[in-house]
Amino acid sequence: MKAALRAELFKQRSTRTVLGLFAAMVGLVLFVTLLHGLGLSAENFDGTAEQITAVFGWGEVLGALFAALLGAISMTGEIRHGTIRPTFLVNPHRRSVVAAKVWASMLIATGFGLVAGALAAGAGTATLRARGIDVRLDAGDYALLVIGGAAAAALWAAIGVGVGALVRNQVPALVGITVWLLFVENLLVGDIAGIDAVGRLLPAAAGRAISGQAPETLLAPAVALVLLILYAAAAAVAGSLAASRRDVA
């Protein structure tokens, strides 16, 4: 298992994919925080929760998104390029291969989440201050955004690996993850389904809750953390079973 993990970590850093994802994430976090921080009218920034939703929370949202993409690509990339064949020849214990991908992706995604959270915090604070708006976050809020965001990113990376192993085809996997995180859940969580009922139990909402977003409507961070761990474990196990049972083309 240690060897499998070392191999997976090496794979992640021996192409430019991870670096490209990281750069895209950084760019997008800055873009969205600055856009919202500068563009939204001042009444959007009345309270702590409002400020987090409008500006600071984007660190977690985009960190989780890119973490999930990273995890998915670690699986679908190998299927797409055929490296899954030599990978499984060298280590025919496919569950250990998937597990190594989960841990490696979680590790790197933790870094993604920390950077995304810190960037959003820094850029958001600077932008609001520049506009003369009072930043209503205390140290605890910041800490939860960054650390909770890192936890959410790590767990979403595991979900990504699971989804990648289940879907196998790269484009649908990545599009599916992106659309789910950025649109589908927002729609389900919005007025249609009613957030109190089901919406807040969904995985993207749990990720947001872990970092302290929308505390009025979402779960408490600790509860959300447990819930997202369950989602991540379920996805990883399902992906692992799928990878073990299906033939490799």
């Binding site: 191999a7 090496f10 794979k11 390029h81 055929g82 064949r85 060298v90």
Partner: peptide, 27 residues
């Protein structure tokens, strides 16, 4: 056992040496 099933089972963005290195680490 050593095997080659397809002639192009590589990540185009990884160097040949690193491809071998990744497999060597796993094994």
């Amino acid at each position: 056992v050593g095997a080659v099933l397809e002639s192009n089972d590589f990540d185009p963005g990884r160097s040949g040496g690193d491809h071998l290195r990744a497999l060597a680490l796993a094994a």
